[in-house]
Design a binder for these strands. Structure first.
Length: 137
DNA sequence: CAGATGACTCCCA
DNA sequence: CTGGGAGCCATCT
């Protein structure tokens, strides 16, 4: 069970940025709610907020189907939407295993383009944010 | 007005 | 690697 559903105010505040991030995910790739929240990178933006925002997507340019949970499975609440999301992903070439999970190592989005992120003020994903910062001196 | 209800993730057994 | 539980409250009916 969950707690603290994001307030409508929070959703409206973050939705535009969340959608911009989701639009960066290319076809055939998927990302997670938590990852999107990290890229948005603002205080108060967490996975659940991203989920709430995904539920309100109306802009057909936002590939909401490419956002799944950390386990690599579809989190949509109703059976109907869940199937639709899966079919959209399969149409892009994403595959599911026998347990309805997506191999995130294989299909996971590696984060936004560094230049784009820098220009628009977004964060990169941790792995990419600090690939290796060994010798600076 | 009260009660049910959350597009999640992390932690531990 | 899987499964189950906690987090702790604003909205909606």
């Amino acid at each position: 069970v969950d707690i603290t559903p994001p307030s409508q105010e929070q959703i409206q505040h973050f939705a535009p940025r969340i959608y911009e991030v989701v639009k960066q995910v290319p076809p055939g790739r998927v990302t997670t709610y938590g990852a999107v929240a990290q890229v948005v990178g603002e205080e108060g933006c967490d996975a659940r907020l991203v989920g709430a925002a995904m539920a309100l997507v109306k802009d057909p340019e936002v590939p909401w189907q490419r956002v799944v949970n950390a386990k690599g499975t579809i989190s949509t609440r109703n059976e109907r939407a869940m199937l639709a999301q899966r079919q959209r992903l399969e149409a892009e070439g994403v595959t599911f295993d026998a347990r309805d999970r997506i191999d995130l190592e294989r299909f996971g989005w590696r984060g936004p383009d560094p230049d784009w992120a820098a220009q628009h003020g977004y964060h990169l994903l941790p792995s990419q944010e600090e690939p290796d910062q060994p010798s600076l001196f």
